[in-house]
Each structure stands twice: as structure tokens, then as C-alpha cells.
């Protein structure tokens, strides 16, 4: 019996193609975070502003580094991806617990809140969890390929 070779999760895509993709994605994500939290969301609240500013800036730095093909671009991407991934998981955790809190306090009366919060999670997850996870997988794969 033979074992099939495991297919790499991030198979396919040239190095420059992935740099371009992640560079553009991070630039858009950074812009959305900075505009959304620092411009549109009111009033100012440091507990929201500081992490959002940190993510936004790191995303932009990594985007510039990747698109300009700088050596430090990949290091910046690593930091941006880990930061987004960890904070993203924390945000989703808090949103889900908030949904459970509302459901627990209000019972079935809170169904509408549950649906809206569920929609928020569904919209957030691709950007704040999935994309950083894909970036981290790509970085690891790239590192493995280089070392072998």
C-alpha cells in the first residue's frame, strides 16, 4: 500500500504573484481598518483605537514591503499576519461570547441580535482570520522550500 504525498495547502502561485496578492490584500485590509475604526467609528476609545492602529499600520508597512519587493517585506508580512491572526481570533471570540451573552440574557427574544452578530462574524472571519492564516501558511511553505 502506498501513501499519497500530502498536498501543500498553499500549492500553486509564483513567489511574485503571491507577494502581489498579499500586498494588495494587506493594503486594502489596512485601509479598511484605519478608515473604519479611526475615521468612521465614533467616539474614540483607546482599547479599540490602539489595536486597530497597530494592525492598520503593520498591514500597510507589509503591503509596501511586498509590493516594492523589499527584503524586509516578508518579515513585515510575518508580523502583520501573526498580529492580525491573533487579534482576529480574539475579536471573533469576543463577538461570539457577546452573542451568547445576549442569547443568555434575552433568551429567544434576542434572536435578531443573534442573526446580526452572526452576520458580523461571517463578514469578519475571511479578512481577520482566513487571510492572515493563508499568509502564514505561505510564509512557512516558502521558508521550507528555500531551506530544502
Amino acid at each position: 500500500m502506498t501513501h499519497a504525498t500530502p498536498r501543500p495547502i498553499m500549492a500553486g502561485g509564483s513567489d511574485s504573484g503571491m507577494r502581489l496578492t498579499f500586498g494588495v490584500l494587506n493594503a486594502i485590509a489596512g485601509l479598511i481598518v484605519l478608515l473604519g475604526v479611526l475615521v468612521l467609528a465614533q467616539p474614540r476609545y483607546w482599547a479599540l483605537d490602539l489595536p486597530a492602529a497597530a494592525i492598520g499600520i503593520v498591514q500597510w508597512v507589509s503591503a509596501v514591503g511586498l509590493l516594492a519587493k523589499r527584503r524586509w517585506g516578508l518579515r513585515a508580512l510575518t508580523i502583520a499576519a501573526w498580529l492580525s491572526f491573533v487579534l482576529g481570533l480574539a475579536v471573533v471570540f469576543l463577538v461570539v461570547l457577546t452573542m451568547v451573552f445576549l442569547r443568555g440574557v434575552h433568551g429567544s427574544y434576542g434572536m435578531a441580535a443573534l442573526v446580526v452578530s452572526g452576520l458580523v462574524v461571517a463578514l469578519l472571519v475571511p479578512y481577520i482570520v482566513v487571510v492572515p492564516a493563508l499568509e502564514l501558511l505561505w510564509l512557512k511553505r516558502r521558508q521550507s522550500e528555500r531551506s530544502s
Partner: peptide, 26 residues
């Protein structure tokens, strides 16, 4: 991060979230 590490993180995260949610709701 390897795919395996990601899977472990996902399993632990979902488990933690499920347990926390059940405790909170109860």
C-alpha cells in the same frame, strides 16, 4: 505556520469557544 499547527490551533480554539459559550449561557 504549518498546516498541522493551523489545524491544532483551530481545534483548540473551537473547543475553547464552545466550552466558554456553554458555560456562559448556562
Amino acid at each position: 505556520m504549518t498546516g498541522r499547527v493551523l489545524r491544532v490551533i483551530a481545534v483548540v480554539y473551537i473547543g475553547l469557544l464552545a466550552v466558554s459559550s456553554l458555560l456562559l449561557f448556562g
